[in-house]
């Protein structure tokens, strides 16, 4: 995996608009708007982003949002609780899909 994910590549995120600058700009404008202080604080949004980063297994985002949370004064306990929310959601999503399995079992069994 080391060849695919390198910490220094996080800095390359600023260049993802290469080859499609207009779309890149639209994305960054949207990203900036979505993450800034609003009805939810930047702090709360950073915690949501951290939970998403871990559930989506993105090492760049985990690096970026762990740092962002630290910068915004989020405590270790708050960060770990956010990760547990993501973890519980993923577990719940997996278990919710057992509905299909249970429906099929019930239909097929004699």
């Amino acid at each position: 995996m080391a060849d695919y994910y390198e910490q220094k590549d996080l800095a390359d995120f600023a260049h993802i608009g290469e080859y499609a600058p207009e779309l890149g700009k639209k994305y960054f404008d949207y990203y900036g708007e979505a993450l800034k202080d609003g009805a939810l604080s930047a702090r709360e949004k950073a915690l949501i982003a951290l939970a998403v980063a871990t559930t989506q297994h993105c090492p760049y985002c985990i690096d970026a949002y762990t740092n962002q949370c630290l910068s915004l004064g989020v405590s270790q306990e708050e960060m770990m609780e956010a990760v547990h929310v993501g973890s519980a959601m993923v577990a719940g999503i997996v278990l919710a899909h057992s509905t299909q399995m249970r429906k099929i079992i019930k239909k097929k069994e004699m």
Binding site: D37, S41, A42, R43, N67, Q68, L70, S71, L72, G73
Partner: peptide
């Protein structure tokens, strides 16, 4: 005065001030 408690940069002053 807020100083980061580790090897990272401070967040936006306005956000931290509200939190404090």
């Amino acid at each position: 005065v807020h100083n980061p408690s580790g090897a990272y940069l401070p967040g936006l002053q306005n956000s931290l001030e509200n939190h404090y």
